[in-house]
Nucleic acid binder design. Structure first.
Lengths: 189, 189, 189, 189
DNA sequence: AATGAATGAGAGTTCATTCAT
DNA sequence: CATGAATGAACTCTCATTCAT
């Protein structure tokens, strides 16, 4: 039993290693610009083994997106608070935190949104993500008493996406903390 | 002389046809997802001739970026006005207009910004573009009398980038005109 | 001892399961078109275990051929009769019966005969089979009093091979029983 | 003009070289057992060039079959004679001649008939060929005054297919000429 | 005895680039 | 000037075989 469990853990661990290697490379070089060989090498395995854990390169991308979805759900739940002000504040703070800690994740998701047409599941993910965040933001801005919450939610979400892009361009020079604070002062009391 | 000039024009014309074909295809299918054959066919010439006008596929991308730069300079000059309010208004309006009329251009530039590491000239272009717009916006907001112009310029440029992404995701459903007006009411008096 | 015997039987049984799975798949998909994984799955065992019972995929094919040879010997013995007329009749009837009941066997053997050059043991098997049947038929036709038994044996064996091919092409529409009777009327009194 | 024609000829020539290389290899090693690299090497070209002349490996097989069909039509037309005895005689003689001169053709067609299920166009070809020859033979045997022409046509066509297989097995030792004569004495007066 | 993770070679295919014409 | 035949490297993916467990 012990051994079996350890082995299973090992397998899951390896799956994750491949997944994250792919994630990192897709984010920096693009999906088409990344070869399965590169992914395998980055994960420290042979090319062929990749296909034991994932059906195809496309499947790898799909699984990454699924991972993002699942992770997001958990994250959103953990951020929830009855007080809309606190919830909103946390949402914004969390977004900046992810840019800091997992810039590849944000980069990949953002660039996938620009290649919306290639695979249907990308388009679905993109629209889903867009709608989820937009509705959540509008609701919160509404509760907080913001006038014209619909338009404002649109601006706020766009702003965050834009910050992600700009951070990606200028890197460490971008004043993440300062910008975060400034946005908070505008939207959270 | 006459003939030589006409021939030269002809050559420039053909160069442009190749360049625009590539631009269109890169924007819709991605750089890696587009083959030189496709570009040549779209431009109505042979594969081999492409290499008379451009050194390589990478060079083609570089020249597209150069074209963007040059075009931007001209556009910015044409939008200039002594009155910062009018200049700012025109800048924002022009941005939305380009999203409407040349969505591929915006899409290509935005997605290139996310693959900053692949080629050095992409990174340079991205930083250059970012700094240019940021400084211009800050200056104008300053003149207009906006408090905290630096932070505000950051938000405004991020907002515009974000709008471009979101339009790419939801397409025709995105309320471009409404958003444009809303932004104008906030930043232009 | 008892246990050892039962275990040995068990082993032989498993060997047969692998062999027959391979036989079936080789016949329907071809040797090159069948993977060792498929064979293992069809036999209900793991890929690795296949290599405990057989040295290689090629060896598997060789053992199938050996199985055919052994089975044929037994079959021929069981069909034997002192009366050449009865023996001949049985031989022909048995051939048609095998087409009906084990079309895969016939198909595999026939198609292997056409790829004579790939492995030496295929060529040997093919020639051996050809000679065996030809000599037997000639002998029987001779005893039955057929003039020009040599040439006639050649035709008869060719005829049977041809029937196998044609049945494979048209399938159920092929009039096996009718053809069998017709051949019998020509060669058996 | 001259040059263009010569070039076109050259291209057709090269296409044929690839086609015949593939034909030869498919016949001796089977379709699955032959790689595109092998075909290219046999044709004296690079692997990639194969795909300029043929869409895929499958297309190569399809074109071979089309070539067979076209060639057969021409051959049949050239063999025709108003006298059924002469026509029949020529048909049989031509079959033996092809075995002698183009054994790979016969071998490939025969082995394809055994892999009828893999691609639809193979099945169509096989059934078409079978029906064409069967009907033609029956008609001729009928005109010649053979009793039970239907059954007899079946035997005759099967016989010829069988001869092809047996020649493939024993090669030069097979008495083609003798067998041909013997068949002729039985079916042609 | 039995598994299936792991490898590496090779499959079919595409494509940037060159070059003879 | 212009073509597209030709190449070779790299692509995604498969599979026979091995081996630690």
């Amino acid at each position: 039993m012990e051994t079996a469990t350890r082995e299973k853990d090992f397998k899951i661990q390896k799956r994750k290693r491949i997944l994250f290697s792919a994630l990192e490379l897709f984010a920096t070089q693009g999906y088409d610009g990344t070869s399965v060989s590169q992914i395998a090498k980055a994960a420290g395995i042979s090319k062929g083994l990749t296909y034991v854990y994932f059906e195809s390169k496309e499947d790898l991308l799909l699984q990454i997106i699924n991972y993002f979805k699942a992770e997001e759900e958990i994250r959103l739940a953990s951020l929830y608070d009855d007080d809309p002000n606190i919830f909103l504040k946390r949402l914004i703070h969390d977004f900046f935190n992810r840019i800091r800690e997992r810039p590849e994740h944000i980069k990949l998701v953002t660039s996938l949104m620009l290649q919306v047409s290639k695979y249907k599941f990308i388009q679905e993910m993109a629209i889903d993500k867009y709608l989820t965040y937009f509705q959540l933001m509008q609701e919160l801005l509404d509760k907080v008493g913001f006038p014209d919450s619909r338009r404002e939610a649109k601006l706020l979400t766009a702003m965050l996406d834009g910050v992600a892009i700009q951070f990606n361009v200028v890197g460490e020079d971008y004043p993440l903390t300062e910008t975060e604070k400034y946005i908070l002062t505008k939207y959270v009391s």
